[in-house]
Design a protein around this nucleic acid. Structure first.
Lengths: 224, 224, 224, 224
DNA sequence: AGATAAGCGAGACGGTACGTCCAGTCTTTAC
DNA sequence: GTAAAGACTGGACGTACCGTCTCGCTTATCT
């Protein structure tokens, strides 16, 4: 995934961008990448520890060994800072490789979500930011467009390939497939319940069954 | 649904609770029910308007025409106040009436969620409290136990009845059914997407199909 | 000294006042003298401990084992309560007995003040209330009229008798005598310094000397 | 007079103190002298208006156009703030110039007190703080040491010079002279009575008379 | 004896101020 | 010109009291 930088002037190592936007003479002390990292790391730790509501920029600054103004110079708000962190952490968990196995690819979709939540810092961070994504457009809109959009695309590809292989019926609807595969995972993130492979198997099993090619309609025996 | 009172001393009208916890002599001026309502109403309005992060008890007090101390006398924290509100709003949207129609009952499950989110104050309120439910055990645990538990029970009943009617296969698993039916709804609440009847129909359709009684695998009637 | 009650309806033991103000029928439960005492005692203790600024009626009520309203029923304000306490404590230290000995009577004036400050609860109480007496007319005016006035009268009598005895010169001015005798004592109460008999002796000595009958003016030698 | 700073880090203009306490590098934005003044001025106005008991730091902050935290950053308590104000106001009214005229110098002592009380903001301020000086060591002790001590020294000098000139008798006791000269003034400040030149004259007259050289009991040596 | 009326302890109530913490900005020195 | 440090205004926090107001109960007088 390719996530847009929030900062006006990018970190100096981001050579590509510098080449594209050759910023003028570039005077004075250059911004430090080390500081950028330190701030994001401190934000992650405190966000996981205390939640977004209790995230204090003063503490972030202290933990990062940085002046508050340095943070405000790089991000316009606490939300923007959280958003960059979210992009950074969400990126790696989207893609699904083509494997020739429809069940396997569907399971990869679900397990990507499960693992990102249970085994990486992304889990606690998104937990802390769910309300912001749901209710704060300045975070929610970019997140939807970039991260959710990317995931939907991946799922659409998986469905397409399944149809092509004849594993799914031709009218299998990719527009609710993401919800059906990933919705249960996020439901458990919020409302509790095990997030493991068995759970993923059941979800995938039901979706596969639900999207299976129809057998010729067998007349059901009349009740009574 | 039966929601436990958060207040130490219950409102005087709550006769049932008084009977269960026969509080001693009851001295001093009794707490006012009218004020209790006013505070919850003010909380709801501001929570919907600004989200949990920006909810200010000082404003709640002002809007309810109440002193701050009166709020702290009844709830130990902003979270506890939000929790009571959540219970109150969540209650009415859980139950599913038996109708004899499995598809209809499953759809009722989904549509109850959809309507509670799109057409009642519960939607904005839970949006604002998702992070607290997910990450703050003092809110999350009671909510899971009471509200989510109640919904799971209702779904289990619907599945049972569906099996009994022969509309669902006997091994249809009620333990992920709630996730499959309601998970997609909450996914869209957070990550965007239409929440309407068409969406509910697709979700229900897929679950019905996935849980449909299996075609007897062997002696398939010879085509021809 | 005779101090007027602040309360609208006086304690029942204050017979004299009851006779003067024969309050109508007097229905309902009568006010308790025991409570009156308990409140004044609690006030005294807390006033001495914490000063007037930090005197809390809620604590007075608690210490006296009394409801707050019971205090407000009897005194309109914290100041009025303090004033009654002040009257009660100031009373006993005013009078000076005629002894035939002018120096002795003057010393009695000073020592009355010294002892009231160093050896009775009046000392700490008035210390705590000095600012109120000086700056709050609702306390200062009655106090001046009753307590200070009484002291001035006593001093005037002492001076008169001293003149009559020929110990003081006929134009000895009683209008500043109180200030000269008692002012130094209160000066030390506020600004520090020993308050003992030696101090009293020096003050009295100087006043006696200053008010002594004039010797025939001896022409002082011209300085050079 | 030389008054000690209450602030941990002194205002930058207070060069002398900086030299005595060479605070390290001096980082961050320095504290503003203008703000220091504004706070003291606002405190003075409100203290005069309402007395110490009703002095509200929130109002001081508002009137000074300052955040509350700025006040707490500089003074640990309302009392400390009042103390600095007191020092500032008391300073100018202590000194007594040598004039060669003993009566005049004694009168200067008394009139300094009278004028400071009747014609400068010091009057209302000390009126409001009398109880604190008398009963609160954290205010009283420094005040006694600095301000009262300074006044005692001045009076001692006046007495010494009077003895040297032969206007006062050699054993005139400076240790109670301050009480006798200034005590009456503070007595009237608290307990009422005119504070004017006539009053000063009477006080001075009596002290002069009381301390006058004794008539030679035995045949005085013939002049010349 | 019962009715009437206050007194009383307890504690809820709307407010005001407390002293603390942060948000977001500004001002200094150091690099 | 960027950075760390930290002062600055302003707003909310959660607590403590103020002075008032219900409550249930007690203690007296009046009928």
């Amino acid at each position: 995934m390719n996530i847009p930088a929030t900062t006006v002037r990018p970190a100096t190592t981001d050579v590509a961008t510098v080449e594209l936007e050759p910023l003028p003479p570039l005077r004075g002390r250059p911004r430090s990448d080390r500081i950028h990292r330190a701030i994001l790391d401190a934000t992650r730790e405190l966000l996981v520890q205390d939640g977004f509501t209790k995230l204090r920029l003063e503490r972030v600054a202290a933990r990062a060994g940085v002046g508050k103004a340095t943070i405000y110079r790089r991000w316009p708000s606490k939300e923007a800072l959280a958003l960059e962190l979210l992009f950074e952490l969400a990126g790696p968990h989207i893609e699904v490789a083509e494997s020739g196995d429809t069940r396997g690819e569907l399971k990869a979709v679900v397990m990507n979500s499960v693992r990102s939540i249970t085994q990486t810092p992304f889990g606690p961070v998104i937990r802390a930011l769910l309300s912001q994504i749901a209710g704060n457009p300045s975070i929610g809109d970019p997140f939807r467009e970039m991260v959710v959009g990317a995931r939907r695309s991946q799922v659409a590809l998986v469905i397409e390939r399944g149809i092509a292989r004849g594993d799914l019926r031709p009218d299998a609807d990719p527009s609710v497939a993401t919800e059906l595969l990933v919705g249960p995972v996020y439901f458990r993130l919020v409302f509790g319940g095990r997030l493991d492979e068995a759970f993923a198997d059941r979800v995938v099993g039901l979706v596969l069954e639900g999207y299976a090619p129809r057998v010729p309609p067998i007349p059901r025996p009349m009740p009574r």
